[in-house]
Amino acid sequence: MYGRRASQLLKEQASCEAGQLTPFNSDAFEQVIKECDEHNLQLRSLIRKIEDQNLDIQTTRNEDHFGAVIHHLSLIRNKRCLMAYMYNRAEIIQSLRWKLGPVLPQEIQEKLNYLEEEYFKNHSTVIESYMSEMDIDLTVDMVPPKDPYIRVRVLDEIGEVCLDDHSISLSKHSLHFLRRTDAEPFISQGLMEEFVE
């Protein structure tokens, strides 16, 4: 059936939890692209056939015309599916920049194709230029603040870091009492967690 493969591509995406990426399905993607070419070939040859019979392409309503319409519509459907697939993924990629910062963890990077990696970097710079033009960092303060300080536990060796005006050694498993705005970037990268007793 025409268009089935493209819809499967989207179904795969829809069955995944919202906001999560599935690994880029390049096999299915390529097959749909190939399908598009085939539809186009069929479409062209049917149009040529109508023209060869010296019929008016605008008004002819024979079997060749309807065949061509079906190929045209299938092509459009495939295009919409491919675009939706790419676009929905791009939206998730945008949201990752907000949630995780400018560097993606390995396991997410593996799910992107190379154009998407490129897009993530490009979009990242767009957000960064806005922030520098406005002179404000929008990637902190993702949740409404309760207390200006929070207690955190370091999950991974971070080492010596300079915060505000003093440097502090963030070694693995150590507990610290930090300003929330200082700790947030580490937390979003998974290097720290809020410590709740």
Binding site: I33, C36, D37, H39, N40, L75, K79, L82, M83, M86, Y87, A90, N113, L115, E116, E118, Y119, N122
Partner: peptide
């Protein structure tokens, strides 16, 4: 992004 990944490859 959409150009390179999808559109340019369509008829």
């Amino acid at each position: 992004h959409l150009e390179q990944s999808v559109l340019a490859r369509l008829p």
